[in-house]
Design a protein around this nucleic acid. Structure first.
Lengths: 199, 199
DNA sequence: TACAGTAGTGAACATTCGTTCAGTCGTGGA
DNA sequence: TCCACGACTGAACGAATGTTCACTACTGTA
């Protein structure tokens, strides 16, 4: 072959990502060789050296096994200005890269994913089956979407102010505004949303 | 030891989770034995049999390596003074980079994130500023949400069938149905959606 | 045209891996 | 008290693992 060839490695990286998505582990050198069509494990070893130098893989702190690096989970982010043309890129030549988890989760230790049930927020584009990203806090402001605890149940509503008191406002005309007597317990504030469409 | 001892296995599972959180991989039998204080690998093997029967681990589809099972990421959430009626929530444990990503992305090498502009799909709960997960493919079915290329621009619409021809249907009454003359170029199919609220 | 740098080859090596199996130990039920 | 069962031991085995090294093939540059 030849001098450094980013395209080829980008293709290899793609296959490793696909393998990882399916098997949730990084294959052995032997299997990498099979995947890529190498005839020797040494080639796989060198490939991993290159990819780890680029930040896609790391060594496990415990033993010397491979684990995914941060960039391993980056996805290409289409620039709307960009025309068709496959975004196969290893170095983000122009297309940006996007980390889903980093985008959604700022404080992992205080973040909880909560599945949405019901359609009381459907007019706000929050559907049954969606998963909302919730940061656990009691400090919420009017206008926030919050997960509150009402009658021992979790409820997702907009926190609103009515006559100086907090109320829970659904985004669906078929549902009534909840005016809690006594104290309103806030579980957390919605900071994101994830939806998966059927495959 | 004695007959089945759930407590002991719960403790073992805890250590395996800790190891996984740190190393992002399931240790070998040898290392499991060290972790748990076993003197033989066979004990580790049997432990994994028990835990996999309980749904905490699975075998990788490819080879016979262990991967985390469904219940592996499940959290007791007993520590947060939870009450009855708690929704089943997924707590993103420390630096769990790949939870959301794994949920949304099945074929990394063919997956692109595309920012949404405009409100032509607002009645389907897709807002301006959302980011959709798109799998690049030309094979789309009627009913899919697709990113198509119309007049050199990306457009997100529902692919629909009208009189035997494909059309692009917005989900907003203010927008017209797009009936492409000639060929309709599909960029990809929407398989997921990500939204972030103010921060 | 010659050279340097890079990707991949092919074989060797010690190490670690998972599996198997006979056997030990302790507890709960009969 | 006895016994069955499940957790764990300890050693053996072949298969798979990562590493090393000399080597070939190719490309871009001087």
């Amino acid at each position: 072959m030849s001098a450094a060839n980013p395209e080829r490695d980008a293709d290899y990286l793609g296959r490793l990502r696909d393998y990882y998505a399916e098997n949730r582990r990084i294959p052995s050198f032997q299997r990498i060789a099979e995947l890529m069509g190498f005839a020797s494990k040494a080639a796989a070893s060198k490939l991993m050296d290159r990819l780890s130098n680029a930040g896609f893989f790391e060594r496990a702190p415990d033993d010397d096994a491979w684990i995914p690096g941060e960039r391993f989970f980056e996805r290409p982010l289409a620039d709307t200005a960009v025309r068709a043309g496959a975004p196969d890129m290893i170095e983000s030549s122009q297309g940006q890269l996007f980390l889903v988890d980093r985008y959604l989760v700022r404080q992992p230790s205080r973040t909880v994913m909560v599945p949405v049930k019901g359609d009381s927020m459907i007019d706000a584009g929050i559907h049954d089956g969606d998963i909302v990203v919730v940061v656990r806090t009691r400090a919420a402001n009017a206008g926030d979407f919050v997960v509150a605890i009402v009658d021992n149940e979790f409820t997702l509503k907009e926190l609103a102010m009515e006559k100086g008191k907090f109320v829970l406002k659904p985004h669906n005309l078929a549902y009534p505004i909840i005016r809690p007597q006594g104290e309103l317990e806030i579980f957390g504030v919605v900071t994101g949303l994830v939806r998966r469409y059927r495959d």
